[in-house]
Design a protein around this nucleic acid. Sequence first.
DNA 1: TTCAGTTTTTAGACACAGTCTAAACCGGAA
DNA 2: TTCCGGTTTAGACTGTGTCTAAAAACTGAA
Lengths: 135, 135
Amino acid sequence: MTLHHDIARKLADAGIPLTSQRLLIACELFAEHCHLSADELLQRVGSLTPDISRATVYNTLKLFSQKGLVQELVVENGKRVYDSNTAPHPHCYNADTGELTDVHQSLQLAGPLPELPPGTALERVDIIVRVRNVA
Amino acid sequence: MTLHHDIARKLADAGIPLTSQRLLIACELFAEHCHLSADELLQRVGSLTPDISRATVYNTLKLFSQKGLVQELVVENGKRVYDSNTAPHPHCYNADTGELTDVHQSLQLAGPLPELPPGTALERVDIIVRVRNVA
DNA sequence: TTCAGTTTTTAGACACAGTCTAAACCGGAA
DNA sequence: TTCCGGTTTAGACTGTGTCTAAAAACTGAA
Ligand SMILES: [Mn+2]
Ligand SMILES: [Mn+2]
Ligand SMILES: [Zn+2]
Ligand SMILES: [Zn+2]
């Protein structure tokens, strides 16, 4: 109940008109901190009724990302992942399992950022701790 | 001349039998520090004679990566990039142009690494400075 | 309520990077 | 020469994401 209202307000604040599809997708994304690919999300909402089309899931995720509601991550090829936590935080990626988890300790960079190429502005700094299963 | 000999030795040291295709690909990769996708590399060697098949380019890049001769990077979806510099070093990614450059200043992490998930070992830490063109 | 104009959703075709397979090819040893 | 393992190859195939054009759902004015 309140969850739906919170999410509706969240979308409104971002200037996104509310639709039933967007509400369902947002519910899945914001119920808990998660890292979901478009197809994983599609599968989740697909088990609900009525189904939401694939195009809408992709469009909505891109829209949410552009409006700053989710963070788009790319850590392995052929899969884009959306992070419902938009605060800057490092990630841990298991190259064997593909599992992507948060690093709750804040990894700061020592020293200043490098000089950026001329004509560019900083967007963010991605830090990914890559691990492998021990043999 | 010596370049070919240097590269031949490099492959031999890594335990990779020499073939004409591997030599051509390695020449393109190791002549200068570069970040190449499989298709970019395919295009380069494709302008030579004789052509090298797409499958061989993909197989060879994966082999070189497994043997530690190049570093596989993923910063945007739908394109894997191979870095001929295997030393750990941060990168700068322009999200507007797709350009990937090296950060020559070494960005160290302040403080210790986080505790890794049980049963895993550190592979490496990727640091990517994402920038955008200013309007 | 009607109706026109706009936005959103949708199915399906499409593009593209990467993988897989099975056959051809090659080079060295017997 | 023949044999045999490793290598290369064309082409089919997969999976993720994009595009398009039409249907559907809104919106606001008449
Ligand atoms: Mn369903
Ligand atoms: Mn050619
Ligand atoms: Zn996260
Ligand atoms: Zn580099």
